[in-house]
């Protein structure tokens, strides 16, 4: 095993390749998880506080809507550099795999908020009205009506978000985050190791295929019987 890890493939050690894959998974996994929590909360504010929503609140809607628009209008490469002081404040330093979670989350949360907002809006207003007529509290409306009705669509939205994160994580890796993208850029591009670059692209493609496959499968299962 040790021997295999130390052996080389296209000019780098297998160990390096696997470590970088692991870093990519780490970055995508954690930022997706935390980004989903934040993004979903923002999406709820957008859906519940919008005009005609069950918690109609113009100010809350306006604030979240504006934040989402502002963050989403900054390209990731620029966002990454712009918020470096903030990242450093939070994580102690601005580069590395763990600190790169900060820009990734800041980037993906508003994106997910928009995607999940669309999903949540698919819920039939009649069902929400029925929920209120039954005496459901706001929390119960979300838990027993909004979520089950839109779960399949939300899983697809998260899949799209995860794939977007994969792309962003490659960029983050370039600024010292590691990951598969880092390999492609530093070795493949700067050192002109074309075979390695192609290999990393293949790995990224495999990641995307796998994510989409899992997402589609899960979504279809959640939508069974509809």
């Amino acid at each position: 095993m040790e021997e295999f890890l130390q052996s080389k493939i296209f000019g780098i050690k297998w160990l390096r390749l696997l470590t970088n894959c692991q870093e990519t998974l780490y970055m995508v996994g954690w930022s997706l998880l935390i980004g989903t929590i934040i993004g979903f909360s923002l999406a709820l504010v957008l859906v519940l506080c919008r005009k005609g929503g069950i918690l109609e609140n113009r100010i809350a809607y306006l604030i979240v809507n504006t934040i989402c628009n502002i963050v989403r209008s900054v390209p990731f490469a620029i966002l990454l550099v712009t918020i470096m002081p903030f990242t450093r404040l939070l994580m102690g330093r601005a580069t590395g795999t763990r600190p790169s979670l900060v820009p990734l989350i800041v980037y993906i949360a508003p994106y997910l908020a928009r995607l999940l907002e669309n999903s949540l809006l698919e819920a039939d207003p009649g069902i929400l009205e029925a929920a209120q007529a039954m005496g459901a509290s706001t929390w119960q409306v979300i838990r027993y009506f909004l979520l089950p009705e839109t779960m399949g669509s939300m899983v697809l939205a998260l899949t799209t978000g995860a794939i977007g994160l994969l792309g962003a994580s490659a960029m983050a890796g370039y600024v010292g985050g590691g990951g598969v993208g880092d390999l492609a850029l530093t070795y493949g591009y700067e050192k002109m190791n074309t075979p390695l670059m192609i290999l990393t692209v293949c790995i990224l493609i495999a990641f995307v295929q796998l994510l989409q496959f899992i997402g589609n499968r899960l979504s279809r299962r959640l939508r069974a019987h509809r």
Binding site: D124, G126, E129, A130, P148, E149, L222, A224, H225
Partner: peptide, 11 residues
């Protein structure tokens, strides 16, 4: 309350 479009959870 009963509705024209039933408003049941379809899944």
């Amino acid at each position: 309350m009963v509705f024209q479009q039933f408003n049941l959870l379809s899944g």
